[in-house]
Amino acid sequence: MKIEKKIGNWCQDAHFMDFVHRRMHQELTERPENGRYDDLFEELDEAFDHDDRYIEPLVEYLICRLHIAKLCKNARQRERGIWWVWFQVVMEGHYVQAFSEYFDPLLAELRMTLMPMLHKEYVLMNTLKEK
């Protein structure tokens, strides 16, 4: 079964989607390390504020950070890196929609990375509740 189909099935589960929204809200509001300073990202973000041509390098940097996080062998560091990229995308706000041609590949990959991670956490949580 392809991962897209699995994700589609998972998204039909209202309890899972409630869990996803709670976790995303938690990462957005309760994790100070998600907003940690990254010199290169901040430089690209500030340059983008002044010139739209910097959107492509900004998105490429986020894609690179996502790939680096996915390659990390330490599960905790891998998850922290993935959440950091997600947090930065959320902080870009309306630019994600305004420059969708640049962000769409990143959003798709981020979804294919985050949803299995969240589903694994959800299943583990439910398994522990049952015991």
Results as ranks from 00 to 15, higher is better:
residue 63 I to P: 00
residue 43 E to I: 06
residue 26 Q to S: 15
residue 32 P to V: 10
residue 63 I to N: 07
residue 44 L to P: 03
residue 39 D to M: 09
residue 23 R to V: 13
residue 35 G to F: 03
residue 35 G to E: 04
residue 30 E to R: 14
residue 59 V to L: 02
residue 35 G to L: 02
residue 33 E to D: 13
residue 45 D to A: 08
residue 31 R to S: 14
residue 49 D to A: 14
residue 30 E to G: 07
residue 44 L to T: 02
residue 58 L to D: 03
residue 54 Y to I: 05
residue 64 C to S: 11
residue 55 I to N: 10
residue 42 E to V: 01
residue 34 N to G: 13
residue 56 E to S: 06
residue 57 P to H: 00
residue 23 R to M: 05
residue 64 C to T: 08
residue 54 Y to C: 04
residue 65 R to V: 04
residue 57 P to V: 00
residue 22 R to C: 10
residue 52 D to L: 09
residue 26 Q to I: 15
residue 29 T to H: 15
residue 45 D to F: 03
residue 50 H to K: 11
residue 34 N to D: 02
residue 44 L to W: 01
residue 48 F to R: 03
residue 42 E to H: 03
residue 62 L to A: 04
residue 59 V to R: 00
residue 46 E to P: 00
residue 54 Y to W: 11
residue 37 Y to D: 08
residue 19 F to V: 04
residue 38 D to V: 06
residue 50 H to S: 12
residue 51 D to G: 06
residue 44 L to N: 00
residue 33 E to Q: 12
residue 22 R to S: 10
residue 52 D to K: 08
residue 48 F to N: 01
residue 57 P to T: 00
residue 57 P to Y: 00
residue 61 Y to N: 01
residue 43 E to C: 13
residue 20 V to R: 05
residue 63 I to M: 12
residue 32 P to S: 12
residue 49 D to Y: 13
residue 26 Q to E: 14
residue 65 R to I: 03
residue 52 D to Y: 11
residue 33 E to H: 09
residue 38 D to H: 12
residue 58 L to F: 02
residue 18 D to K: 13
residue 28 L to P: 06
residue 36 R to F: 11
residue 54 Y to Q: 15
residue 30 E to H: 12
residue 20 V to S: 05
residue 18 D to P: 00
residue 37 Y to G: 05
residue 27 E to V: 13
residue 19 F to M: 02
residue 41 F to N: 01
residue 35 G to C: 03
residue 23 R to C: 09
residue 56 E to P: 02
residue 64 C to H: 15
residue 43 E to W: 10
residue 48 F to Q: 02
residue 23 R to L: 10
residue 60 E to P: 00
residue 46 E to L: 12
residue 52 D to P: 10
residue 57 P to N: 00
residue 24 M to N: 07
residue 34 N to E: 03
residue 34 N to A: 04
residue 29 T to S: 05
residue 36 R to G: 07
residue 59 V to Y: 00
residue 55 I to E: 13
residue 53 R to G: 09
residue 56 E to D: 06
residue 20 V to Y: 06
residue 18 D to E: 09
